[in-house]
C-alpha cells in the first residue's frame, strides 16, 4: 500500500530533520566534556578527543551549586503554584461569573499582555527595593505570581467547559467558591499542565531579575550563577558554561517529558488555538 511507502520516506526525512534540530543540544552535552583548548579548536570537534569530567567537578566543588539549585527550585515552584492558583481563580471569574467591572478587568489583562518587559523593569526594581524585598526570595517570587497570559489561558479554557455544571452546583446549594474549587478546578488539568510547564520554564530560565534582586550569592539562582562563573571580563570558559547549561536544562527536560501529553491536550482544549 502506498501509505507504508510514504511513511518510510517520512521517517527518513523526519530523522534527518530531527538530527539537524537536536544537533546543537547534543553538541552542548558533548561539549561539556571537552577542555577549553578543544572547544576553541578549528575546525571544531564533534566527539570529545579527551573526555574530561573536569567541568562538572569544578561546577559542583568550587561553586555552591546545590544552593543555587534549591533557590531555583523554590522560586520556580512557588511562582508556578501561584500562577496555577491565582490565574485559575481570576480565569474562572472572568469566564463563568457575571460581575461589575468584568469587561474592564479583562481588557486590562489583555492590554498588559502586549507590554514589553523592558518597560517595567526599572520601576519594578525600585519598588521592590523600597518595600524591603531586595535580596530575598519573596522579592524573586512575588512580582511573578500572576501573569496576564496565565489569566487569558485559564479564562479561555474554562469558557469551554459546560455551563450546566455551574447551574447544577447552584441547584445543589454549593457556594460560588465551592463550585469553583470542587467542580471546575478538577476539570482544568490539561490547562493547568500547559500553564504550569510554561511558567516553570520561564521562571527557571529567568536571568536578569534574579541577577539584580539577589544581592548575595546565597540568593542566586542557577542562570545567574552560570553567567557568573563562565564569563570573565575578557574570556569565556566554554566548558564550564556548557556543563552548567546542561545541568540547568535537565530538570526542564524531565518535566516536559513527564507532562508532554497533558501539555498538548491542554493547548488543544484551552481554546487558544
Amino acid at each position: 500500500m502506498t501509505r507504508t511507502r510514504s511513511q518510510w520516506w517520512l521517517y527518513a526525512v523526519l530523522t534527518i530533520v530531527l538530527l539537524a534540530v537536536i544537533a546543537p543540544f547534543v553538541w552542548m552535552v558533548l561539549g561539556s566534556f571537552k577542555t577549553q583548548g578543544e572547544l576553541l579548536q578549528t575546525p571544531p570537534t564533534w566527539w570529545p578527543q579527551t573526555a574530561t569530567l573536569d567541568n562538572y567537578t569544578r561546577l559542583f566543588s568550587r561553586l555552591n551549586f546545590s544552593q543555587y539549585f534549591v533557590n531555583s527550585t523554590i522560586v520556580a515552584v512557588a511562582v508556578t503554584a501561584g500562577n496555577l492558583l491565582f490565574c485559575s481563580m481570576v480565569g474562572y471569574a472572568l469566564a463563568m461569573l457575571d460581575f461589575p467591572g468584568r469587561r474592564t478587568l479583562f481588557l486590562v489583562v489583555m492590554g498588559t499582555l502586549l507590554i514589553p518587559g523592558v518597560v517595567t523593569f526599572v520601576p519594578l526594581f525600585v519598588l521592590v527595593t523600597n518595600v524591603g524585598l531586595a535580596n530575598s526570595l519573596p522579592g524573586l517570587i512575588l512580582p511573578f505570581l500572576v501573569s496576564p497570559f496565565g489569566v487569558f489561558l485559564m479564562r479561555q479554557y474554562i469558557s469551554g467547559l459546560p455551563r450546566d455544571l455551574l447551574d447544577a452546583g447552584r441547584v445543589d446549594g454549593a457556594s460560588e467558591l465551592r463550585i469553583f474549587a470542587r467542580i471546575f478546578l478538577p476539570l482544568c488539568g490539561p490547562a493547568l499542565a500547559t500553564l504550569g510547564i510554561l511558567t516553570f520554564l520561564g521562571s527557571w530560565n529567568n536571568f536578569l531579575w534574579p541577577l539584580v534582586v539577589a544581592q548575595e550569592e546565597s540568593k542566586y539562582t542557577l542562570p545567574v550563577a552560570l553567567a557568573l562563573y563562565s564569563k570573565g571580563q575578557n574570556s569565556t570558559q566554554y566548558g564550564l558554561l556548557l556543563a552548567g547549561a546542561t545541568v540547568v536544562v535537565i530538570p526542564v527536560l524531565a518535566i516536559f517529558l513527564a507532562f508532554q501529553r497533558r501539555f498538548i491536550e491542554g493547548i488543544a482544549t484551552t481554546g487558544i488555538k
Binding site: F125, L211, A227, L228
Partner: peptide, 14 residues
Amino acid sequence: TAIPWDSAHDKFTT
C-alpha cells in the same frame, strides 16, 4: 559577592 561581568553594570546602577 561575586557578580557576573556581563550584567555587572546593570546590577550596580540598579
